[in-house]
Design a protein around this nucleic acid. Structure first.
Length: 498
RNA sequence: GGGCCUCUAGCUCAAUCGGCAGAGCAGCGGACUUUUAAUCCGCGGGUUCGGGGUUCGAUCCCCCGGGGGCCCA
C-alpha cells in the first residue's frame, strides 16, 4: 500500500484531490476500504418498511444502511445525501450537528464526494419535506471513489456509454434496466423450452471445422493438437448429432462468433438460441417461436405490448401473418411472380424497381434480392416469410409439395430478421451432396462456405428423425423488444482499443 | 470499401470572419439546521484526438493518421 503518487502532478485536479482525501482517511486511522461493513437493512427494506410516513416523523427505529452517494446537499449544520444501492433504490441520509457532532460533521463535509460508498447509522425519520431518511448518529466511509462521477443529470456520450459501461450503469437507469430485461428474457426462454420438454446442452465453441451457417469464422490455435481451431459460427451440426443420438428436443442458448462487420445491428459475438425438435416441421417451429417471443415480451413488459425507447408502443399479439416469399414479392412489384417465373422476367421487374442484380444470379437469387430490397424493411408486424427457392437455402429439406422450394421461413419484425427455421434435411445422401458442393466452394476460396464435416455425415448416416430446427438471435430479440441498438443490448460490446 | 458528420476542462457541450478558449454540472475556499440536480459569494482547472502544412497569428483553413456516429455498397 502506498500513499505516495510520484505521477500525481500529471493527474487531473479532481483525482488528485480525491486521492489526497483517501490518504488523509488512512492517516487519521480510519479506513477508506473496510473489508466488512455492518449494515442492518438494505435501502429497499427501509423503504418497504415505511411506505408512507407523515411529514417530520421520528420512528425510533435504528438502522445501518449502505449506498453510493449520488447527490450531496451540504448546508452549515445539516447535510443531506442521497444514497443508492444496486437495484436502483434511493434513500436520503441526513447528518445534523446535533446528532453526529461537530468533528464528524466536518469530516463528512471534508471527506465525502459524489460516488463514494458510505455507511450511515441512525434513526429512520422523515424530513420536514416528508422525505424518508436515516438521521445519522455516525457514518463510515465504505469505499472512497477517486475518480469523479460523470454528471448524473445528462447521459454520457454514446461512445463513453459503451466504453465505460460501469459509468453508464451508474448514471443511467435504462442501462441498468437492460441488464435485468436481458436476464429475464434468457430465464423465460429457458423456462419455456424446459416446460416443453427441451433439454439444454452445451456443444463445442472451439471446432476443428466450421459449419452450420455461412459466415467467416474466427481462427485460433491449439498448441496441444498443433492445429488451427475455429470459434463456432453456429451450434447446428452438434445439435443435430444430439438429435441423432436420441435427444429429441434439444436447445442451446449461448454465444456464437462471426468474423464480420461491426455496426448497429451486428456484433462479432452474439447470443443465439437454436432449438431442434424431432418429428416436428417448420410449421411447429413457427408456433414455438411465436410463443417464445410473446413470453419474452411478457417477461419484460407484462404484456404483448412492447414499449420502445422512442416511446412508441407495438402489440406483438398474434396471429402472426404468414406469406410465401413469392407472394410477398408479388405484392411489392404489383405483378404475380412464382417459382415458375423465368429469370429474364424477374430481371425486367428488378429494372423497373431499380434493384441492381448480378449477371450470374438465378431466378431464386433474384427473388431473394427483390425481397430484401423491396419487402423486408416494410414488414413491421411479425411476419413469417416462407418457402424459399432451394438454391438460396442449400441445406434445407426440399418442399414436400414442390421440389424447387425449401421448407424454410424467416421471421421478420420491425423490418429485420429475428429468427429462421427449417424442416431439416435428414437424408444423408442428399446432405453429403450438398456439403460436397459447399466444400468445393470453400476449397475455391469462399471464406464463408462450410467445410466437409465427415463426422457429421457419419452421424446423419445412422439415421436422423424428421426434425424441425429454429435459430433466433437473442440480441436481436432484445432489440425488437426495446427498440435499442445491439450495443445497448450487450453489456460489454467489443470496441476498438482506445 | 465509398460518402457525410464528429472529437474542446472529470462529464455534457459552446466558441462569430482565422485574433487572449467559455458555460452548466463536478472540484477548491467561504456562508447557510430541512435540502431534493439545494442556494449565495469567491477561486482554480485545457497537449482543443495525434502529426505535418499555410499564416504575423490556427479550436477554426489544408494534408496525413486515429477514435466515434450516420448513410450507402
Amino acid at each position: 500500500m502506498t500513499n505516495e503518487h510520484p505521477g500525481d502532478e500529471a493527474l487531473p485536479e479532481q483525482i488528485r484531490v480525491r486521492r489526497a482525501k483517501r490518504a488523509e482517511l488512512l492517516e487519521s486511522g480510519a479506513e477508506a476500504y473496510p473489508v466488512e461493513v455492518h449494515r442492518t437493512h438494505a435501502l429497499r427494506e427501509v423503504r418497504q418498511a415505511h411506505p408512507d410516513l407523515p411529514v417530520d416523523t421520528a420512528t425510533g427505529e435504528q438502522v445501518a444502511v449502505v449506498g453510493r452517494v449520488i447527490f450531496l446537499r451540504n448546508t452549515g449544520k445539516l447535510c443531506f445525501a442521497t444514497l443508492r444501492e444496486g437495484d436502483g433504490t434511493e434513500l436520503q441520509a441526513m447528518l445534523s450537528l446535533a446528532n453526529v457532532g461537530g468533528d464528524e460533521l466536518a469530516r463528512w463535509k471534508l471527506m465525502v464526494d459524489l460516488g463514494d460508498h458510505v455507511l450511515v447509522h441512525g434513526e429512520v425519520i422523515t424530513s420536514r419535506r416528508g422525505e424518508l431518511s436515516v438521521s445519522a448518529d455516525r457514518w463510515q466511509m465504505v469505499s472512497k471513489a477517486i475518480r469523479p462521477l460523470p454528471v448524473a443529470h445528462r447521459e454520457l456520450s454514446e461512445e463513453t456509454r459503451v466504453r465505460q459501461r460501469y459509468a453508464d450503469l451508474i448514471v443511467r437507469p435504462q442501462a441498468r434496466d437492460m441488464v435485468r430485461s436481458r436476464a429475464r428474457v434468457l430465464r423465460t426462454l429457458r423456462n419455456a423450452l424446459d416446460e416443453r420438454g427441451f433439454i439444454e446442452v452445451e456443444t463445442p465453441m472451439l471446432q476443428l471445422l466450421h459449419g452450420g451457417a455461412t459466415a467467416r469464422p474466427f481462427v485460433t490455435r491449439s498448441n496441444a493438437l498443433d492445429t488451427d481451431l475455429y470459434l463456432r459460427i453456429a451450434p447446428e451440426l452438434f445439435l443435430k448429432r444430439s438429435v441423432v443420438g436420441g435427444i429429441e428436443r434439444v436447445f442451446e442458448l449461448n454465444r456464437v462468433f462471426r468474423n464480420e462487420g461491426i455496426d448497429s445491428t451486428h456484433s462479432p459475438e452474439f447470443a443465439m438460441l437454436e432449438a431442434y425438435q424431432a418429428y416436428a416441421t417448420y410449421d411447429d417451429m413457427a408456433e414455438l417461436t411465436q410463443q417464445l417471443v410473446l413470453a419474452s415480451a411478457h417477461a419484460v413488459f407484462g404484456s404483448t405490448v412492447v414499449r420502445h425507447a422512442d416511446g412508441s408502443e407495438h402489440d406483438l399479439a398474434g396471429p402472426w401473418r404468414s406469406v410465401t416469399l413469392h407472394e410477398a414479392v408479388s405484392e411489392a412489384v404489383g405483378e404475380a411472380v412464382s417459382v415458375e417465373t423465368p429469370a429474364e422476367s424477374l430481371r425486367k421487374l428488378a429494372a423497373v424497381h431499380d434493384v441492381e442484380l448480378k449477371d450470374s444470379w438465378s431466378a431464386g437469387e433474384i427473388i431473394l434480392e427483390l425481397f430484401e430490397k423491396l419487402v423486408e424493411h416494410t414488414l413491421i408486424k411479425p411476419t413469417f416469410v416462407r418457402d424459399y427457392p432451394v438454391e438460396v437455402r442449400p441445406l434445407t429439406r426440399q418442399h414436400r409439395s414442390d421440389p424447387r422450394l425449401a421448407e424454410a421461413w424467416d421471421l421478420i419484425v420491425f423490418g429485420t430478421e429475428l429468427a429462421t427455421a427449417y424442416s431439416e434435411l435428414v437424408d444423408p445422401v442428399v446432405q453429403r451432396e450438398r456439403l460436397n458442393a459447399q466444400s468445393l466452394l470453400a476449397a475455391a476460396g469462399d471464406a464463408e462456405a462450410m467445410q466437409l464435416d465427415e463426422d457429421f455425415l457419419r452421424a446423419m448416416e445412422y439415421g436422423m428423425p424428421p426434425t424441425g430446427g429454429m435459430g433466433m438471435g437473442i440480441d436481436r430479440l432484445l432489440m425488437v423488444l426495446t427498440g435499442l441498438g445491439i450495443r445497448e443490448t450487450i453489456l460489454f460490446p467489443l470496441v476498438r482499443p482506445e
